[in-house]
Design a binder for these strands. Sequence first.
DNA 1: TCGATCATTTTGATCGTTCTAATTATTCGG
DNA 2: CCGAATAATTAGAACGATCAAAATGATCGA
Lengths: 348, 348
Amino acid sequence: MPTVDDVAQAAGVSRQTVSNVLNSPAIVRETTRERVERAIADLGYRPHASARRLRTRRSSTIGIRLDPLRDGISGAVLDRFVHKLAEQADARDLRVMIFTADGPDDELAHIRRLHDGSDVDAFVLIGTVHGDVRQQWLIEHRVPFVSFGRPWGGDLADPRHRWVDVDGRAGVRDAVNRLRASGAERVAWIGWPSPSGTGDERRAGWAEACGLDGATQAALSRSTEDGVEQGAALARELLSGATAPDAIVCASDSLALGALMAATAAGRPDLPIVGFDNTPVAGAVGLSSVDQPLDEVVAAALELLFGESGGDVRPNPDSNEEPTNRLLVPRLVERRSNHLALGGTTGA
Amino acid sequence: MPTVDDVAQAAGVSRQTVSNVLNSPAIVRETTRERVERAIADLGYRPHASARRLRTRRSSTIGIRLDPLRDGISGAVLDRFVHKLAEQADARDLRVMIFTADGPDDELAHIRRLHDGSDVDAFVLIGTVHGDVRQQWLIEHRVPFVSFGRPWGGDLADPRHRWVDVDGRAGVRDAVNRLRASGAERVAWIGWPSPSGTGDERRAGWAEACGLDGATQAALSRSTEDGVEQGAALARELLSGATAPDAIVCASDSLALGALMAATAAGRPDLPIVGFDNTPVAGAVGLSSVDQPLDEVVAAALELLFGESGGDVRPNPDSNEEPTNRLLVPRLVERRSNHLALGGTTGA
DNA sequence: TCGATCATTTTGATCGTTCTAATTATTCGG
DNA sequence: CCGAATAATTAGAACGATCAAAATGATCGA
């Protein structure tokens, strides 16, 4: 591999001029620049990333932990998130390094390793939880990071904690409103056990929009761990209850798929059911779902970390001038035909 | 961040001794080593990754392209693969860098960029295709790589092409045999259009084991692009045909899910159906599926690249002594109850 | 006690780049 | 056509680690 010196020699200039052509072309004379560029092309020169990183003390690399494998249907959202992150990072000439961890402490160990070794100069956190050790450490050590997920239980406006999130409450509210506009009067809810930041927010959206009194709300609301079977079980329970729902909104596609299966089996194939995350499965079985705008989420995350369109600059973590967080609005994807019942999409 | 010099000073030794404690502890005297280790711990020293990489000319980083997002159910396999890769790479003190690409040429551009910049010193390729430009370039430039997937149409024994694959033919064959042992006599096949290396292999497994004459084989075999709806359509076609199948084996879980939906809708909820990849959805709806041993695949891939348990060594690409590939055997995961029909798993 | 041998530690150079500061070319008003 | 200002380029040092080889310390048989 040729070095900057080889290029310099070939172009008849000095090392530094070659470097300038690459990093601040504006200060190099037109004719010189062209000569150097030709030499670069001829020799097939590429800067040695590690040498550059060593000198500039910038890795231009973001680290992200892959979510632990779940058996559920969901989780695919985070895979999509990572994918989009890689895509958009590339556009800014950033690299993405991944790692896995067993739990928060293990993750923190990885974060420290990658940070202390200057492998990575910013982190993206997903799935924030109450009193997160990661956030605390990152803030304390002034390591740039952004989280996909609000700092539950923390100061939402703390400028040192940059975050992006999707307004699940609004998403569910819209879904419920839509169902009611279509004639549903008893929209039920299947969600996750409290306390769960994300889950509680989504449920709140349902509670706000369902238009039911307290007793009816209690009768039409259920919670369980995420999972298809769990969703099916609770849907069966709801459907055989005293006040049967005429629509169900769920906190996830897994729960919704279960509910759809239960409804179909119970002879109610047309019961409107809405899931969350708009996973591939939802599309496949014809399930409505609240779609998170991951493209925007990623774009906002990178913008908070690196600025408007900045290449690899990286502002300091505690300016208080512009907001350091962003709440995005999801969109309901409506699907009408229950493919489980039809056995296919559009007729035989 | 402290440097090796700071540690040296604190421990009262030279730079190099600190380096030796980290890289070849055996040659350092016990007492000295302890002193240095204490200093390292006290100062919280971590070697600067880029400096080390610059000097050693080794990045200890593997690059992998994330599969393009598909709408299908499958594809999750590759996410799981990436996850396990990150896990096992970590155990060897390797980093994993991800990227995305629009097509083979774009991917090659990324590969060149990462390689030429010494960002990455080995690549893992997934989803090999006939006459792959990536493989060709990597071999030509003697860049270490391993592919998950055989070099379709190439020399399977070429020592310069390290690969790991799962024997889909054997997997499908076993599945068919199992179905026949349970009494099925007309096992149908729903797969992908030929030519498709992976798809053709899987179909061959069916053809070998189904025990049907040519005409019946033709009547019971269908192919289509991957997708739930596509699977449902073909299953309907098969079920309403002259010679109706009493079991269906599919090339993917997407197709199988479609088939299951179609069968359920057609009043044949108990028709045995087998998918491929054992994705979360298969578990959720109670679909049998052929499971790829991804742990072993990843372990084998890393072993082919870095040796038995080697940390970050990296053998040269063309020794002919040991095999440079590995074909692993998948395992059928049997599930009996069709949850679509029951509307849940284990009764109400 | 001496020189040879082996174990341990240190010194100087180097990886490929960019930073800082100094040097040389060029432009321009008068 | 000169001197000052600005533009363009260059030389030397530095980033933080490891390599290669030299220097020192310890061990041991004669």
